[in-house]
Design a protein around this nucleic acid. Structure first.
Lengths: 332, 332
DNA sequence: TTGTAAGCGTTATCAA
DNA sequence: TTGATAACGCTTACAA
């Protein structure tokens, strides 16, 4: 592959001049510019990105760690990031964390060594302290999908407490008072926050919190089904279920159907995430939407801002969940 | 950030020796190795990937172009690729093609310039000739999700004709003879192939091909619904529909439901892709599965093989679709 | 406006 | 087994 030297020889100029016309940094006379362009075209010259990065100390790339590259939930974040950086001639180095701290660390180390200009991390295996440690370097780090107290100005997150509250209040407004909750994976912040929002809404409405109406899940459909099953087996009657995510909700609906109950006539169901499946379930699922693409974009903007590349005056850090009403909730 | 020079100074050895212990290429005396390791640890030294790549001409990265990073269909490919390259200390540079030739070209050029060790392309905007042109370079190129005749030994693809055949034959075996087809986007190879398979199965069963039973879609739900609507409006009765993908099938089911028809009692439906939604539709959708993760893995193996890195004796190029039976088909 | 030449941080060649 | 040192291909002072 042709080098800048080849181009300079062919165009009968110095390599410096070639570099100048390529980067448009310094004025170059029309004739030489012309000659350089011609040579570049003729040789199909493409500057070596490594040499360039070595000389400039700029990678033109941002590293991204996401829990699963192939997931309806996290894919939206990637898409958001990509949509903003592609306008800045940046690329994306992506790696999966698989929800495990050890793998997340590996991915992080890897990306660090690649000398990315910035890192965007969506981690849910690592502890807050670990995330804070990751962020404690010279390369700009942005955290997405989570709020780490030690990093107040570079976390892009959704208020999951508000989300849980929103879902529950929606049910309360429809007249429900005996509202069950299929919780997410114990120990995960998102699960905890949604549960907290659930309690807040109950409390606000003067409804006593009843542990017997809460069953543990793990964000997967099967656990959602089992949890709902166990809820049905208990003595407490309920007219609605708030599930920690859409998949759990799908499991809940399955359990209800198998118990001969009709959604929403007998029991209403609300999910969380607004993944594709919420739209396809029958009845379609009322759920809480996370604006993932927007969050990905915000993360990218924040990263670019820290690189002095995109001076967007104000980037939104905290995103609000939105209730998406479909067919799975009935008024009492 | 510390450089190899800093390490060599601290360890009182030459940079060459540092390089040697780091790469394990050449024997180094225990004492010096010890000293180097200590210095590396003390300085938290991480070799500069650019300098290394410049010197070795190896990027340790493979570029991937995929239609949409956030998609149930293509995400599986990314995951497959990642799962094999992460064992080779390689990373993934990903870019979306958005189904458009111009954007695909941009993504390709971008990745080329980044000097990736290899490229894996899943393109559906570019023509066969364009894809062949992309592959005509010194860097190894693997095409996934499509068979380009000019590149017989580096395309990882699914036999879509077989898939269309499989779906249709399944319906024929259940006693259906009046089988409608909601086609995919006109001009897209996948759509064409599935349609061909549909015709083959009919022919084999001695059923005349009837144009009035075929309606154009575009792989999206709405078009699937409209197509099925138009099918219902025609004079031809049918007892089954084979849709070019799951989303079209969802649209078809919607149209049928709105027409007061029960799936599968009145009309059976078969989809294609086995995306998450096939599982969640009610009734759940019988569909044709594409082993996307396996295809991604195969693509990565092929790329590594071309780099002399993973001498897997034989990589499977042609994948067979699998029929996944669920609840949307009834025997006549 | 242009060219010369010194980096950038590695690896690899060649002697020793 | 080790150390000098010349690449690798680009950018960027510094001079002209």
């Amino acid at each position: 592959m042709a080098t800048i030297r080849d181009v300079s020889l062919l165009a009968k100029v110095s390599t410096a001049t070639v570099s100048r016309v390529l980067n448009g940094s310094v004025p170059v006379s029309p004739e030489r510019r012309e000659a350089v362009m011609a040579a570049v075209a003729q040789l199909d010259f493409r500057p070596n990105a490594f040499a360039r990065s070595l000389a400039t100390n700029r990678a033109h790339g941002i590293g991204v760690v996401v829990s699963e590259v192939s997931s309806g939930v996290y894919g939206g974040i990637l898409q958001g990031i990509e949509s903003v950086i592609e306008g800045h001639a940046m690329h994306m180095l992506v790696s999966s964390g698989h929800h495990q701290a050890a793998i997340e660390r590996r991915a992080y180390d890897f990306l660090r060594q690649r000398r990315c200009d910035a890192l965007i991390l969506q981690l849910d295996g690592a502890s807050d302290d670990e995330v804070a440690a990751f962020a404690d370097t010279d390369v700009p780090v942005v955290v997405v999908g989570r709020s780490v107290p030690a990093l107040p100005d570079r976390c892009i997150y959704l208020d999951n407490v508000a989300g849980g509250y929103l879902a529950t209040r929606h049910l309360i407004e429809r007249g429900h008072r005996a509202i069950a909750h299929v919780a997410g994976l114990a120990g995960v912040a998102d699960a905890r926050d949604r549960h907290t929002g659930y309690r807040q809404a109950l409390e606000e409405a003067g409804i006593d919190y009843d542990e017997a109406l809460v069953a543990d899940g793990d964000f997967m459909e099967d656990a959602g089904q089992r949890a709902t099953q166990s809820l049905l087996d208990r003595e407490r009657a309920f007219t609605a279920v708030f599930a920690a995510n859409d998949q759990s909700a799908a499991g809940a609906m399955r359990a209800l159907r198998e118990a001969g109950l009709i959604v929403p006539d007998d029991v209403s169901v609300v999910g969380y995430d607004d993944t594709l499946l919420a739209h396809y379930l029958v009845p379609s699922l009322t759920t809480v939407r996370q604006p993932l693409q927007e969050m990905g974009q915000a993360a990218a903007w924040l990263a670019l801002a820290r690189l002095g590349l995109d001076a967007r005056k104000e980037v939104n850090l905290r995103f609000e969940p939105v209730l998406v009403e479909r067919e799975s909730v009935a008024a009492l």
